[in-house]
């Protein structure tokens, strides 16, 4: 009888192990594939020419494969989105965690979950049909597709992750801290901003980094509002991100050509960026657990 149970346990254990390995195998497969396909073009173009070249002209007779415009656009776009999204997200989280009445909390939480569930193509579509013409009118420029449009769309897209993670961190602050502060005569607002927020700071930092990860990896929404020309980034000019550089030219690049290989190399650069963000995020969570 005992033997039978043990056998069953072993089988179930094995199944779970295999299922777990599928995830690891996928990650390994993608990493190895990206490195293998991404390295050759970097070698051929030259590491510095590739990363710091300012011109991307893959189809001229003497093609240029410099991806600095894409890297800077991705970096500026992400920073801009986080700068815009963080204050809104942070104060929303404080409000929800500490000040809002249960009913409001419920409604706003639902709205945020909904916001998180909207497919990125819908963000892009609304951006393209509402935001882009609006920016054209407001700033009196000839065309609204620009880095600014992309930043605004991205800042809305990072809101759910910033709000949710900050909210959880703020909720987790022990009641005693706040009660102590209130008992010493601090007003509720002073308590929340000077006691609760510092106590939850590593969680809030993690929320922001998660937002960075979301923004840098987004392709569909930005391709529809950024204009997609390989310019050096400028707020009102058409720009191309790392993600959109890969997706926009992949379908037409001749297979086996240096152009196609270079697109894989861009994907590799993007992958390295996202890995870095994950490492930073991980160390924040670790610190939060220890602290």
């Amino acid at each position: 009888m005992k033997n039978k149970i043990n056998k069953k346990e072993t089988i179930i254990h094995g199944i779970f192990l295999i299922l777990g390995l599928i995830t690891i195998a996928s990650v390994l497969l993608i990493s190895v594939y990206l490195v293998l396909t991404g390295i050759p073009a970097i070698k051929e173009i030259g590491f510095f020419d590739f990363l710091f070249g300012k011109e991307w002209e893959p189809t001229v007779s003497e093609p240029k494969f410099g991806i600095l415009p894409f890297i800077l656009t991705s970096v500026y776009g992400t920073i801009g989105a986080v700068l815009l999204g963080t204050p809104i997200g942070f104060f929303t989280a404080v409000y929800l965690a500490k000040l809002a009445s249960p009913q409001i909390k419920k409604i706003v939480s639902m709205a945020i979950s909904l916001l998180a569930g909207i497919p990125s193509v819908v963000y892009g579509l609304v951006g393209m049909l509402v935001l882009v013409p609006a920016i054209r009118e407001i700033f009196k420029i000839s065309d609204g597709t620009s880095l600014l449009s992309a930043i605004i769309v991205l800042s809305v897209m990072v809101l759910p992750s910033i709000i949710k993670i900050s909210f959880t961190a703020l909720e987790a602050v022990p009641k005693e801290y706040e009660e102590g502060s209130l008992a010493l005569g601090a007003t509720p607002l002073e308590t929340y901003l000077r006691v609760s927020v510092p106590a939850a700071k590593s969680g809030i930092a993690a929320a922001i980094i998660l937002g960075v990860g979301r923004a840098i990896g987004e392709a569909m929404a930005v391709i529809m509002v950024s204009g997609n020309v390989a310019n050096m980034p400028s707020l009102f000019r058409s720009v191309r991100f790392l993600t959109t550089a890969v997706s926009s030219e992949m379908s037409y690049a001749t297979s086996g050509s240096l152009h196609k290989q270079a697109l894989f190399s861009i994907a590799l650069v993007l992958f390295v960026f996202i890995m870095l963000i994950n490492v930073i995020l991980h160390s924040f969570f670790k610190r939060q657990k220890e602290g």
């Binding site: 893959p58 001229v60 597709t145 997609n228 020309v229 058409s238 191309r240 997706s247 030219e249």
Partner: peptide
């Protein structure tokens, strides 16, 4: 975008290969 057949066709007739100053390159 670069390599699109329509773009190649257009630019070669107009005679502006790789010289176009696009505001937007769409896919």
């Amino acid at each position: 975008e670069a390599n699109s057949g329509t773009r190649d066709g257009f630019e070669s007739v107009i005679g502006t290969e790789n010289a176009c100053k696009y505001r937007q390159e769409l896919t």
